[in-house]
Simulated scan of single mutants.
Amino acid sequence: MRLLTTLISTLLLSTASAQFQGFFEQMFGGQGGGHAHGNQQQQGQNAPSDSAWYRQNYEGAPCTNYLCPGTLACVHFPHHCPCAFPDQEDKVELGDGSMLCASKGGFAVGEMGRKVELARKGLL
């Protein structure tokens, strides 16, 4: 009788373990809990919230001219930097040799540039 009870208990525990194994692996990243953070980039999850990756790539980028901080493109002058998202942003070169990128401004081509000029003149 004891052997039968032990056998049934073992069978129930193995069934429960198999049933919840997927749950625990999903919940804890398959790392036995708590260790999923160090493996985030390999699993395609969110990037870490510190700037170490950016700093490493910025410091390691080969550039003898000007390294654009937003795109890490190497250009001759700061106003030659490209926008990071050209499909969604318009670029305006400012008179002081700098530039800015901002969300496309609506229906008319160049609308964002016109708004920047109005703002520079104090009219907007």
Rank of each mutant, 00 (worst) to 15 (best):
G60K: 06
C63R: 14
E111Y: 07
V75E: 01
V116E: 04
W53M: 13
P62Q: 06
S17P: 00
Q56E: 14
A84V: 12
N39Q: 04
E111P: 04
L94E: 06
N39I: 09
L124G: 10
G97K: 13
Q21V: 11
F24I: 07
H35D: 08
N46K: 08
G22P: 14
L100C: 07
E25V: 09
Q31C: 15
E111I: 13
L12D: 00
F107C: 08
T71Y: 00
F77C: 03
V75A: 09
A52Y: 02
A16V: 07
S103F: 11
E59F: 08
G44I: 04
S17I: 07
A36V: 02
M99F: 05
Q42A: 10
P69Q: 11
V109T: 02
G30W: 04
S98D: 08
F24N: 05
S51L: 10
C83F: 08
G70K: 06
R2D: 15
H79T: 09
A47D: 09
L3K: 14
L11Q: 05
T5L: 15
G70C: 01
R2Y: 08
Q26N: 07
C68V: 01
E89F: 07
L13N: 03
M1N: 01
L94G: 00
E93F: 02
A47R: 13
M27F: 14
H35T: 11
H37I: 10
L67I: 05
G97C: 01
T6W: 03
D96I: 03
R120E: 14
G70R: 07
C81V: 00
I8Y: 03
A18G: 12
